[in-house]
């Protein structure tokens, strides 16, 4: 019996040793790397690339006419081209609303900005925002407001949208707010009563998407943006234009008040001569822009008038 116990304990020992070997082999496979990586550091981690001095960078503010991602995609080559023309690295500044973008201009944080016509009119009034150049698109220096509806919508005219939900873009957008409001007022209505519900999407492509996905029954968008996005397969699919407004002065390229005159002149030259180079033409073609023209080529009087009327009501 004692021998039995001894044999049994030997058998058990062998089994346990075997088991331990298996387990430790599994364990060994997991370890074996070098030094573990510390997650944090007590000091400040060095930036990957030292930022160039603030005044040597061309800061370009772009109002959220289209959503930030689309903006970056659309403007990156143009911004880079202008930066190279003035021999400065260019950096894009984006903000959530037109008002915030105007604020960037007011404080002179940027050197150059792409804004909406209405934002320009307001900026010019409020702090002397200065137009630099204007784009010419399809031979014109004007653009329109499109009232769009879902492709399957039974609406045939603007009054069909009565009692429906509607999307505005931004309170500082001409085509996305002022123009449709004026169109509704022309019908003798106030937007608050005409539409059952209104929302702000803070960019034109968002408004188009809101209509395409039937989140709202209608929206007012920039004709330039609409055509720009229409080139994409799914850019404006699921929507159709219900009505279009009369033409307005095209949104300008602006500079903050008090910008260095030399830089201002260099920038202006860069824009105005852009269509003369092959690369410039290609970039402009991507944006559906023919060329840039001096600021005097269009006027914003109709917008100014409407704004005043709206402010009065």
């Amino acid at each position: 019996m004692r021998q039995f116990h001894r044999q049994m304990s030997r058998v058990a020992l062998c089994g346990l040793l075997g088991g331990c070997a298996v387990v430790s082999a599994c364990g060994c496979r997991l370890s074996g790397a070098a030094k573990p990586i510390p997650l944090t550091t007590s000091g400040r981690p060095p930036a990957a690339k030292p930022e160039p001095p603030r005044d040597r960078v061309l800061q370009v503010a772009i109002a959220p006419v289209i959503s930030p991602q689309e903006t970056l995609f659309a403007y990156k080559d143009l911004v880079a081209f202008i930066g190279e023309a003035v021999r400065r690295p260019a950096r894009v500044i984006q903000r959530r609303s037109y008002a915030e973008t105007n604020e960037v201009l007011r404080r002179g944080v940027c050197d150059l900005a792409f804004v909406c016509s209405l934002a320009y009119v307001r900026g010019q009034e409020e702090f002397g925002m200065e137009p630099l150049v204007i784009p010419q698109v399809a031979g014109k220096t004007t653009y329109q407001c499109y009232i769009i509806v879902p492709a399957r919508s039974p609406a045939r005219k603007l009054t069909d949208l009565r009692g429906k939900s509607f999307a505005f873009v931004d309170p500082l957008s001409n085509s996305g707010w002022l123009a449709p409001v004026a169109m509704v007022r022309k019908l003798g209505r106030t937007p608050e009563r005409f539409f059952s519900k209104t929302i702000y999407t803070y960019s034109h492509d968002n408004s188009i998407r809101a209509v395409a996905t039937a989140l709202v029954d209608g929206a007012a968008v920039d004709s330039l943006v609409y055509h720009y996005l229409a080139r994409r397969t799914d850019g404006v699919s699921g929507t159709r234009i219900l009505v279009s407004s009369e033409p307005f002065g095209i949104p300008p390229v602006v500079v903050p008040p008090g910008l260095n005159e030399t830089l201002k002149a260099e920038l202006r030259t860069a824009f105005l001569t852009m269509h003369q180079s092959e690369r410039g033409r290609r970039i402009l073609a991507e944006l559906l822009i023919d060329r840039f023209l001096p600021r005097s080529a269009t006027d914003y009087t109709s917008i100014r008038t409407r704004l005043e009327a709206e402010e009065r009501s």
Partner: peptide, 29 residues
Amino acid sequence: LDQPPSLELLRANRPQRPALAHVSRLRTT
């Protein structure tokens, strides 16, 4: 993290291609 991330951690992994996410198995503290 409660402290700034270490340089080793910042460099430990990055997307291999612009549109693709990448997974790395890291042995950390």
